[in-house]
Nucleic acid binder design. Structure first.
Lengths: 287, 287
DNA sequence: ACCTGAACACCGTTCAAGT
DNA sequence: ACCTGAACACCGTTCAAGT
């Protein structure tokens, strides 16, 4: 009852449910072709001759999507709006993409392609190059920067599986650093979310705050002060919130919101790295 | 240009922008009354006599909102749908609430009220009762449980400031444990997101996954296996993803997805606590 | 004081039709 | 093979009107 079961939750997974029969003309994009990074061009390249009238293809659409999301945010994004940007009707898009969600997933993976392409494992020996500590810091900083640069990424990460080729490349890089810490595989599996879910949350609120400031056209410090002023703290709690008070003091002594945030981020990474080191020391020796 | 500036981003902040003039009849809810936990009842109590025809009030609406969000998720929630549930037209709701977003914020804070009410600071001396370690674990576990119980909370937390009375009570509890660790105030400000943004991210993906399973009517293990089967790993990456492989192995040896997740969560908290302890040991003695 | 109906300006998506 | 127009079933919100 109620529409055929559809378990697929990602463009990157094989189509399932109603297997085989298919439901229409425009489906089946990228089944099995997705191993190379240029997966998005699948349908377009299949007909490489005679250029589409409007010059549309999956890649151009995905690119325009990311650009529009950067410019106006997730809330204002719509298929009609995007189509307008591309000089085409909304329905043309559905030739290249099954649903709006699929398109968002494509855009999501696209920006993960902005990560510098780290050397794969098995390159130089395990004891040359940067320590796992500094490489972990780098990865965290890059992830944070991505989330701040593209505030729309964060809500999408919450909704989709994110197993596109670029996201996988990043996940692999994460797993490789963790493997170098000396933690047991089981402990690595706890350490990964410990570090990168933290970064996710941190980058999310940071990006969101910056976006908000941009929308109202205020500086971050200005906006922070204003929000504090408007907010009437319940008096019985006032004493508990030492941190907020302290931030205000630090701002008064000339430090910016951004500087304070950077310092907090660094502290948190110090904490995480120290935590990993402690767990390693605690574990029975292994190889 | 383009609509009067409106900086307010939370029901809990004083109305601002267009200050004084106001734009209509039904605005101005809760200006300054919000210090007590029962702030939502403000308008209703003001007219305590003669019971509204439909029995509507802000509290009942907020309650119904949370219930509907639990039942059908954020995506399917709408003012019209909620109104239907309350046996009323959508527009009636706008008498009690300015916008849909305000209502969502009210519901958000409401579920933060589910946290057990922790004793305020200044109760028993600092060295009786549970250690900061076990209290931190408890807070983390409760937060995780909240996010899993109400998967719609997570996306809302990303969008709103969340400075309602109940959320503040929780934040205060967090600050109090951190104050007991021995960290400097500056380090505390890094440690808080380190721990609780991790929990946020962890609880988010867990809650989301469970919701997905419920929607398609599958067990978690079943769904996990299915997703893995549908996913064709890029061959050059297969060797990197040891963890995923290992999870599959552990599932084959009888462990459930849930058990593995619990173990990972515990490991991450071990890591975080060890990290805090290391930072404390590293800092110059204080107090 | 509280509630409604009609209307506005949007959505994502389907479907039959055009070229 | 690619694109469109019209239509369906929705949104949040406003506004004038009812009781």
């Amino acid at each position: 009852m109620a529409k055929a079961a559809r378990t697929r939750i990602s463009v990157w997974l094989e189509n399932s449910g109603t297997a085989g029969t298919g439901t229409g003309s425009g489906t089946g994009a990228g089944s099995g072709t997705g191993t190379s990074t240029g997966a998005g061009a699948a349908r377009a390249t299949r007909t490489r001759r005679g250029e589409q009238p409007s010059g549309l293809d999956r890649d151009r659409i995905t690119e325009a999507t990311a650009k529009l999301l950067d410019a106006e945010g997730l809330a204002k994004f719509s298929m009609r709006r995007l189509a307008g940007e591309l000089g085409v009707t909304a329905m043309s898009l559905y030739w290249y993409v099954d649903t709006k969600d699929d398109l968002l997933e494509l855009a999501l993976d696209r920006v993960f392609g902005e990560f510098p392409d780290r050397a794969a494992a098995g390159g130089p020996g395990p004891d040359v190059g940067p320590s796992w500590q500094t490489e972990l810091r780098e990865l965290a900083a890059e992830y944070r920067a991505l989330l701040v640069r593209h505030p729309w990424v964060s809500p999408l990460l919450g909704n989709f599986l994110n197993v596109g080729p670029h996201a996988l490349r990043f996940a692999a890089a994460v797993q490789r650093v963790m493997a170098r810490t000396g933690l047991s595989p089981a402990a690595q599996r706890g350490a990964i979310p410990s570090v990168f879910q933290f970064v996710y949350g941190f980058g999310t609120v940071e990006g969101h705050f910056r976006q908000r400031c941009a929308e109202v056209g205020m500086e971050q410090d200005e906006y922070f002060r204003k929000a504090m002023a408007e907010f009437t703290m319940p008096p019985e709690m006032a004493e508990t919130f030492q941190h907020t008070e302290r931030v205000m003091e630090e701002m008064d002594s000339g430090e910016t919101v951004e500087q304070i945030r950077d310092r907090d981020f660094r502290t948190a990474l110090d904490l995480q790295i120290a935590g990993i080191e402690a767990l390693v020391a605690r574990e029975p020796d292994r190889g």
